[in-house]
Design a protein around this nucleic acid. Structure first.
Lengths: 259, 259
DNA sequence: CGAGTGGTTGAAATCCGTCAAGAATAGTGG
DNA sequence: CCACTATTCTTGACGGATTTCAACCACTCG
């Protein structure tokens, strides 16, 4: 399968940023493009973990079913994010697309690893990719560690703005429903709704649409409560870190399509 | 400096390494051994991430200060675990020893990476190490995602038993204080104490010492919910409205604890 | 022995999940 | 373009769970 490369072609008109190729570019030849209808399972917990994925567009949810039967969303995946990498032989999570127009590239794990054995640069990129996943998980861990639901929701908004906004407009379109946000933050959907209202009433955010938020006071959102200066330390900024492809190009208006 | 290493380390419970001695063995030459007194900082958030660490013995806490000033412990590190691997150029967490007799091995990140460039096997091992870290974080995410504090504490106990018990005696010595457990589970120390008492009163665990626990009913500890009412009632799924993944059938019987 | 740490317990206020119902929105087919 | 329906989102009320503040106990160490 020849495969149209995501880089500078299909899914999105723009997304150039031709400076650096994307991490797995040398593997395009073995990749398969897979468009996913809304709510389709891409990989399932328990299956043999033979494929690695790269999100080309849209949104995907990495989730696990908790012992009490509820769903816990462990990671949100947007364009440029990878998933499918595991420690064991099987996936220990399920990934499903969360928006129409979601497209992923599939890479054979075995082939990638063989390639990596003879390509140190690729090996480094794989390491970097995994580190990025670690960073996302740790960030989420910090959000779940917040005490009040309002703080969780506030942190979530800021995080989404950081990941989805190209410009610094502090405007963000929530990529998932309130119910999914609830499963992501481990609170009830009703609580999410109430927290958003409270944040609005307190003037920290403003709504342009049901899912479109204008951040009015980013500081207060992050700090959660009173904004002492006690935690004055180099606000660890976003880490563009590794040569991610065009991930930051025009992500803003997504979700607009369909749904 | 050839160093003695904790052979049978089960960094990843499953595919341990029966074949190779330890992942970074070929790097012993560049490692430095560092004993850490209790409560000593091993690396600090914001510092240049130039060193990778391997825990030889004892306990270490990987933690971050939350915007509200509280400490959140994001990972517990025992013998055989690695830390210090980051996506960016700086550590985005602080690691401190949590028990007397903690010893770590220090590896120069640069040297390791150079080695890995010419040693595919090492590169794979580094990947595996990182995956193990991912697995730990996801597991912790699941624990934080539990609803009640009692479920969090119960899950924590089982997790500790899995990681620390050599035999399958279901007996475990908690490696950290109630306060640290609280920071790890994002609840108050008082709640941890009460949860432990409740678990004991319900017969799910038994205390041999303040920190020594005998697990009496592992099933009940993991599943979290107590016996009757709540669980049946077909309350398996809420929100019939939105397209939840249809699984979760798994709510059926589960004999009450007894004992 | 007194100070310090770690652990436990009680009481009050608050927060959140659950249940229930109603509004707003999007999608579909005519 | 409209009606119609399914989904998503919001709001209220209530009870239970957790945080907070406080005090008290056990143990260790100088």
């Amino acid at each position: 399968m020849p495969l149209t490369r995501p880089r500078n072609t299909p899914a999105s008109p723009r997304l150039a940023m031709p400076s650096s190729p994307h991490p797995l570019q040398c593997l395009d030849a073995i990749a398969a493009i897979k468009p996913c209808p809304r709510r389709q399972e891409i990989c399932r917990q328990g299956q043999a973990a033979n494929t690695w994925y790269w999100v080309l567009s849209g949104v995907a949810l990495r989730c696990v079913i908790k012992p009490d039967g509820r769903r816990q969303i462990v990671d949100l995946l947007f364009r440029g994010d990878f998933f499918g990498l595991t420690a064991g032989a099987e996936y220990d999570y399920t990934v499903e697309s969360a928006a129409a127009g979601t497209v992923v590239a599939e890479y054979s794990r075995k082939h990638v690893e063989i390639q990596a054995d003879s390509n140190p640069q690729l090996a480094r990129e794989l390491r970097q990719i995994t580190f990025d996943g670690l960073t996302r998980l740790q960030k989420q861990l910090m959000i779940l560690g917040r005490i009040t639901a309002e703080q969780k929701v506030a942190s979530f908004i800021v995080d989404m703005a950081d990941r989805l906004s190209i410009d610094c407009s502090d405007r963000v379109t929530l990529p998932i429903s309130r119910y999914d946000i609830a499963d992501y933050l481990a609170v009830s959907a009703e609580t999410v709704s109430r927290a958003l209202r409270d944040l609005k009433d307190r003037g920290l955010i403003r709504f342009t649409g049901t899912r479109v938020i204008q951040i009015m006071d980013r500081e207060a959102l992050q700090d959660g409560e009173y904004d002492d200066v006690l935690k004055r330390t180099g606000r660890t900024e976003r880490i563009p870190a590794h040569p991610l492809p065009a991930r930051l190009a025009r992500t803003e208006s997504r979700t607009a399509s369909a749904n």
